[in-house]
Design a protein around this nucleic acid. Structure first.
Lengths: 122, 122
DNA sequence: ACGATATATATCGGCTTCCGATATACATAA
DNA sequence: TTATGTATATCGGAAGCCGATATATATCGT
């Protein structure tokens, strides 16, 4: 699953939202660190719909502007949970390894004189 | 940062590794959930090198086979830490939102009295 | 009244990235 | 001698991302 798809699913996880709302919500929930682009959004929405992870929930006209709301399917919720677990595991692995690397200085220093490093870690 | 780049950096976080070793390590550290492809690897390695996040550590010839070891730069360590934080935050947000969505049943149910399209699951 | 900004949809084309296939080469096991 | 594993790398098609663009309405400031 792509980053963009993950954040779209996350934005939809608590309630149905329309395209523009997803855009704003992703920015907000990521504290501004992820900026989902308009040109990216509709392709993602189409792929997630085709994949059965989201469905069109309803269409509303508010103040003369069309709003097209999407929501997660049960499969979408499951996929998002699985992806969240995967990301959390990846993040945890990275953190642990950084700590290990700092304990074993060879990793962040110029190569030692001999070929025989690659010690017992990992 | 792409997924592939993140996992390459993670594989290198504890010690220098060569290309093929990165491939196996990514699969192992992710419990088989991430399969970095050979065709993807070298492009990623080039981009990370150009970006200053990794450097060529050394080259060894073991049993007639060349091994080209890469290691993280200090900047690479910092970038990996930042990305790990970002991913962990994203994963946490997703989990929290799924829980919220389950408290608010409207999100996972068919629209009330709507035009009746797209019933249950896809 | 007019222009800028915000809301809201969507498409297009270029660029980056991904990945299966392919190629080369040596070691080991069946 | 055939297959599998280790190890490098490239190529081309496909997928995905994103800036630019288009359309339309509402609001706010000047």
């Amino acid at each position: 699953m792509t980053q963009a798809a993950f954040f779209v699913l996350t934005a939809l996880a608590d309630q149905p939202r329309h395209g523009y709302g997803i855009l704003r919500e992703v920015e907000e929930l990521s504290d501004g660190t992820v900026q989902l682009r308009v040109g990216t959004l509709y392709g993602v929405l189409d792929r997630l719909t085709s994949g059965g992870l989201i469905v069109l929930d309803r269409e509303e006209v508010q103040q003369g502007r069309l709003r097209r709301y999407y929501r997660l399917t049960d499969e979408g919720v499951r996929a998002l949970e699985a992806e969240a677990d995967r990301l959390a595991a990846g993040a945890g692995a990275a953190k642990r390894r950084i700590a290990e690397g700092r304990r074993a200085p060879g990793a962040a220093l110029p190569p030692a004189t001999g070929p025989g490093l690659a010690g017992g870690l990992a």
